[in-house]
């Protein structure tokens, strides 16, 4: 969705998560926004703002350096408007969504807020996608962990009771059903008891 009118919007991105920053930067460039700088932390940000004179600074709300942007109104002619304040009339839900996703943006130079909205929209989408990827990744890791626990418990049972793998598996399943536990809970119990021996 390239849009040539976006090209007039200069953006600085600040994100402590380099992968997410790369995702956001890429999509912004695809949308023709002029990403003048991408920083991994807020130190040096004030200097970068003087250098690049961005219209918008977009920063992760949880970034420890985020408050430094509030300083702009004290040490420069700029009175940056935080995103939460510039569209409470028409589209409050979208702003709330952005804040809940951790996207925070500051309008540094006077610019039509209508031009900033698409920018926030794409950042918001990337933040959510990144979050989903992280959740997916952690659930994959969880599955891997579970599989390791299960295998180890089976091996211990096989050794301890001198039985085959299918028998060990069957014993654990029976235990799980009798005690209304999950297989992984049973495996953890097995480890707790047999792993010490």
């Amino acid at each position: 969705m390239p849009n040539s009118s976006n090209h007039s919007v200069r953006v600085i991105l600040v994100d402590d998560h380099p992968q997410r920053a790369a995702m956001v930067e890429q999509i912004m460039k695809v949308c023709d926004f002029d990403v003048v700088s991408t920083l991994s932390c807020a130190s040096g940000l004030l200097f970068k703002i003087q250098e690049h004179k961005p219209h918008v600074v977009m920063i992760d709300m949880d970034s420890p350096g985020r408050d430094i942007l509030e300083s702009l109104s004290l040490i420069s002619q700029h009175n940056p408007t935080p995103v939460v304040m510039f569209s409470n009339e028409e589209d409050p839900e979208f702003i709330c969504e952005a804040i809940n996703a951790g996207v925070s943006a500051y309008m540094v130079e006077a610019i039509n807020p209508e031009k900033v909205k698409p920018l926030i929209h794409v950042a918001l989408a990337q933040f959510e996608m990144y979050q989903a990827l992280r959740l997916q990744l952690s659930s994959t890791q969880q599955e891997l962990n579970d599989k390791n626990i299960l295998d180890k418990a089976k091996r211990l049972l096989m050794k301890h009771q001198k039985i085959s793998e299918p028998e060990a598996h069957k014993n654990m399943r029976t235990l799980a059903m009798n005690n209304s536990q999950t297989l992984i809970d049973v495996a953890k119990n097995v480890l707790a008891i047999l792993d010490k021996e």
Binding site: M61, R66, D67, E70, P82, V84, M85, N88, C96, I99
Partner: peptide
Amino acid sequence: VSWAKVRDKVAAGT
């Protein structure tokens, strides 16, 4: 931790 974040969270209803 941050006053700016407090402001945004109250405005957003979090």
